[in-house]
Amino acid sequence: MNNTVQLEKAKHDRNRFDCGITALNNYLKIMASQQAKKDNTRTFVLEDEHCPEHIIGYYTLTMTPIDAEGLPEKLQKKHYNVTSGGLIARLAVDQRYNGKGFGEWLLIDALRKLLAASETVAFPVVIVDAKDGAGHFYEKYGFTAFKDASNKLFITIADIRASISLG
């Protein structure tokens, strides 16, 4: 399978992409390039190897403030002075490619990038905002819901490191 690459406005056909969720489609079409130019987010796309301008799926990474009080008590004590974590802000697969494991592939790719980033700029957790009931998808990969928000989940960098090799 191809690697993900950063979204290129001139190359990738953002208007063709349709994951079935308007907000995720519109972010890719309208906001992703603008946010990258401002150094607010990075959006990575998985290209169709037969037609590289077609986007199989994408995810967006950035940093986010952490409210440690939403974490389990053990983690609150361990990370009481931490103020931010990595954020998978969006993750979506075009409906034409559903059921082929691309969502899992994109999630693992995003976690690998965040794990590598954490080796340079330390942060203890990765957070995801699970849109439209997607929380169960993330829970299968070890994410846990925050105590005060069931659609906001986290996984520790230590858990990612234990389950994913960077190789």
Rank of each mutant, 00 (worst) to 15 (best):
N40F: 12
E119M: 12
I108P: 09
P52M: 03
D132G: 09
W105I: 05
G167I: 06
T144V: 13
E139N: 03
D132H: 11
Y97V: 03
I164R: 01
L87K: 11
N40K: 09
K37G: 05
K74A: 15
A89F: 06
T120Q: 15
R161E: 11
G57N: 06
Q6K: 12
N3P: 02
N151K: 07
E49L: 05
D39M: 05
I88A: 03
A110H: 04
A134K: 12
D148W: 01
T4N: 10
L75H: 11
L71A: 07
P124A: 14
F154K: 02
K29D: 13
I157M: 11
K38P: 04
F154H: 05
D39Y: 15
K78T: 07
A145P: 10
E47H: 07
D18R: 07
C19F: 02
A32S: 15
F102Y: 14
D148P: 10
F143C: 11
P52R: 12
A89H: 06
Q6N: 14
T43V: 05
A32C: 03
A116D: 13
A130G: 08
P72V: 02
G167K: 12
S84G: 14
L71G: 09
E73K: 13
W105A: 15
K9L: 08
Y58Q: 06
V125Y: 05
L111D: 14
D94W: 00
P52C: 05
V128H: 12
V82E: 15
E119H: 11
